[in-house]
Amino acid sequence: MRENGTVQPATRHEAESILMGRVTERRRIIRIKDGRASARPDTLVAEEPLEIRVNGRPLAITMRTPGDDFALATGFLVSEGVIGAADEVRAITYCEGATEDGVNTYNVVNVRLAPGVPAPGPELERHVYTTSSCGLCGKASLDAVRTATRFPVADTPPLRVTPALLAELPDRLRAAQRVFDRTGGLHAAALFSRTGELLDVREDVGRHNAVDKLVGRAVREGGLPLSRAILLVSGRASFELAQKAVMAGVPVLAAVSAPSSLAVDLAAESGLTLVGFLRGTQMNVYAGAERVVLPES
């Protein structure tokens, strides 16, 4: 159905199911192995642009894996400090972005804020790509990327985790990566309980998109702040991922690879526990060690 020039599917689930067929795509390739070449089809992860609009005004463009687009947009607005609860969003709809043959691309999302919720100002508008590799690019200064959270991590109830529990999480994340098994080309982010129970997992070509999808789904279920959750990301922990964790009230962020220096600085300033190089029983605690039950020296 149409509403003010937008295409709005009957239900959220119907909207997102439209995209599930584009999570992967098939391409014909030449495979060379042991000196022999053969033609065969291969499964690739899909990557397409998504333009996020707020009240009809373009805000950002991200390269993402289609699917969970409404959650991605919601989580992105949380990380930018625009919203902090589900009732601050009046509606999310796909805008028409038709191809030459009249087919809607479903690559433009418009978020209509609830009455009284301030729209983002010009300082947040950036008509640049939020790339799948590096996240948001083009912010003018370091001050511009430091966004105040509604859910101070330092104020959350005590959360203690053991190294043994943290060591189990990467394998649990990997076991839940269904699309990665078919493509080998996706990052993932997952939320775990303090006992290691997998709460939710999302995959995307970009780690930052996967985190936004997790946070957006939590918003829609009234789950913010995520003050009792552990966030695990595949790959490295950038400043932007640390910021997204802080903005959602996550007290513990773990990554299977290295953090950046700026991510460590933000974690130390905000009270976020940051764990990197989480591989097997080895890991580095870069900030917030008070939440980790450390073994005796």
Rank of each mutant, 00 (worst) to 15 (best):
A114T: 03
G75F: 02
V128G: 07
T93V: 13
A37Q: 12
D101S: 10
R112G: 04
A98Y: 14
R90V: 06
E100P: 02
P41V: 07
L59A: 12
T93F: 08
T130Y: 10
V82L: 00
R40S: 12
N55S: 06
V117H: 03
V82Q: 02
A37R: 13
I52E: 00
L77W: 01
Y129G: 15
E47P: 06
G35H: 04
I92F: 07
P120H: 04
C137Y: 11
S38V: 12
A85W: 13
D101R: 09
C134L: 09
A71P: 03
A86L: 09
P58E: 06
G135V: 04
T105S: 11
V45N: 13
V54I: 03
L113S: 07
R40F: 07
A98K: 12
G56S: 10
R64F: 02
N110S: 09
L44Q: 08
L72T: 08
A73K: 01
A119G: 11
E88P: 11
V111Q: 06
V82W: 01
G75A: 08
V78P: 01
S79K: 06
A98W: 12
T130G: 12
S132N: 10
V128K: 12
I61R: 04
L136M: 14
G135C: 01
S132W: 00
G75E: 00
V109G: 01
I83F: 02
F70L: 08
A86V: 15
T65C: 07
S132Q: 02
M63R: 10
A37D: 14
G81L: 05
A60N: 02
R57K: 12
K139W: 15
L44S: 00
E80S: 08
T130W: 13
E88K: 04
M63D: 12
N55K: 02
G35D: 01
I52S: 00
R53L: 14
R112D: 13
D101A: 14
E125T: 15
G102L: 13
P66L: 05
P122G: 10
V54T: 00
N55Y: 10
A119S: 06
T130Q: 13
A91Y: 13
C134V: 15
V45R: 11
G75V: 02
M63K: 11
E88H: 11
S38F: 01
A73P: 01
I61Y: 08
G84W: 06
G97D: 15
G97H: 15
E123C: 08
A60G: 08
T105N: 09
A98M: 14
G84Y: 11
